[in-house]
Design a protein around this nucleic acid. Sequence first.
DNA 1: ACTCCTCGTCAGATTTTATAACCAATCGCG
DNA 2: CGCGATTGGTTATAAAATCTGACGAGGAGT
Lengths: 113, 113
Amino acid sequence: MSDPAQIGPRIKAVRTERGLTQDQLASAVGVSRSAVAQWETGRAGQVTGNLTRIAQCLDVGVEYLMYGMDKSAEEEVSHGDELALLRLYRECTPDDRQTLLRLARRLRATRPD
Amino acid sequence: MSDPAQIGPRIKAVRTERGLTQDQLASAVGVSRSAVAQWETGRAGQVTGNLTRIAQCLDVGVEYLMYGMDKSAEEEVSHGDELALLRLYRECTPDDRQTLLRLARRLRATRPD
DNA sequence: ACTCCTCGTCAGATTTTATAACCAATCGCG
DNA sequence: CGCGATTGGTTATAAAATCTGACGAGGAGT
């Protein structure tokens, strides 16, 4: 799941994307420039308690640094109407759920391209 | 955001919820029983590279141990049928989406209690 | 009272990590 | 071309962190 050896390159990738030098990230996190270099080159097995600060300074999620992405097996819903639909669906009986799924399939099949 | 001092009690809470002893969690993670006790009593400032293994063994997200909760602003979908519904919904036109939402409301309103 | 189980704490060995220093590559300037 | 500045990789080492095994306390059951 988590690949510690990949955290370093990932930190480097995000840092350069943000246009920061190692010195700048080091100052932001509160460590020496060498520490950042060692993180990025995989010398440090884990970046321990600094992980949260690094994520904050780079404006990226801790789980992104750890796993490379948010959970991929699950889907996130953030649109209000999709949330509403999901909640309504969950409050339906199994039969009604099947009805909704069938209608969704029919509507999708007849949509214009 | 992250409260390192709270990781310990959180580990303990999840462990006891799962009905595990410190010894059992220690065996699962691959450390001594003392290490688990120290994590839970806050002796260790951070639980370093073991955090991922702890989360795996306790069947909980790393971010939950670190922050106490998954992202609260978003909802996660993990059931296959819900994923299917969501995907179908997204492939529909706005008009068809409204149709689905209306039907869902009607079905929810007529469900037996 | 005794035994067992669970867990908190401690001393110490081991491991990890951050620092300062060193060095190399690149680039811009005179 | 030589020089200085900047950036970044690497190393030795001191300091800090972490884990282990041992010890002891409290509770439950017999």
